[in-house]
């Protein structure tokens, strides 16, 4: 995924400084994508260098460096528009799991060792799914309440958009965790059958 385009997208809303960008990003994608301040600031530097973003304002702060506020340039908007209509890469994502390695080297004369690990991993994924579902339920509920309480169409559309993005992202995480659970169950049955 592209940090560059994520920051450009967030800056189309209004000028922001690094902290705003981090907060706005986490609100929407923080459940699945950990973006740190280091990545944000190095990407901002690169965007300024390439003329896609410019310094908009500097706010002095006591005992701390000035707060730099950035805004997107017209080249930045063009770059974002171009990226949005580009087709996604048609490549399967890398599939890699430590279990593959363990299966290569573990002593299968004592299958309980690996089966125990599979069961533990299953619990981890299931607990993860509960957390994700809980978060989804909370986001959905607060969006529904916010929509009921607003009469401003633009605000309603903004809430709807953010709700949709959050739910789609959380669904992706949930479907992946579910696939992992199904795979673990299947592997457990396969190992039991083989041994």
């Amino acid at each position: 995924m592209s940090v560059k385009h994520a920051l450009l997208g967030l800056l189309t809303e209004n000028p922001k400084h690094g902290y705003d960008l981090k907060r706005d990003f986490d609100d929407r994608l923080g459940d699945i994508w950990n973006l740190n301040y280091g990545q944000i600031y190095t990407t901002l530097e690169r965007l300024v260098r390439d003329g896609l973003v410019e310094l908009f304002d500097e706010v002095s702060q006591e005992d701390r460096p000035d707060k730099k506020i950035y805004r997107i340039t017209s080249s930045g908007r063009n770059e974002l528009r171009h990226w949005l209509v580009q087709p996604l890469k048609h490549e399967p994502r890398t599939l890699r799991d430590e279990l593959f390695l363990k299966l290569l080297f573990i002593d299968l004369t004592d299958p309980e060792l690996i089966l125990q690990q599979i069961r533990e991993q299953h619990s981890v994924y299931m607990a993860h799914m509960m957390q994700l579902t809980n978060r989804k339920y909370q986001i959905d509920g607060s969006a529904r309440r916010a929509i009921e309480n607003t009469h401003d169409d633009t605000e309603r559309r903004r809430i709807e958009r953010n709700r949709l993005v959050s739910l789609v992202v959380l669904d992706a995480a949930l479907f992946h965790a579910e696939a992992d659970i199904r795979w673990l169950k299947h592997s457990e049955a396969r190992i039991k059958e083989l041994v």
Binding site: S123, M126, A127, M130, L132, A177, I181, R182
Partner: peptide, 22 residues
């Protein structure tokens, strides 16, 4: 699993016994 994740407590049974609780 996706339905179960809506609960605030999940109890798993195996061979008639509780094998896991989350």
């Amino acid at each position: 699993p996706r339905a179960a994740a809506y609960a605030d407590r999940i109890i798993t049974l195996s061979d008639g016994q509780i094998s896991e609780e989350l």
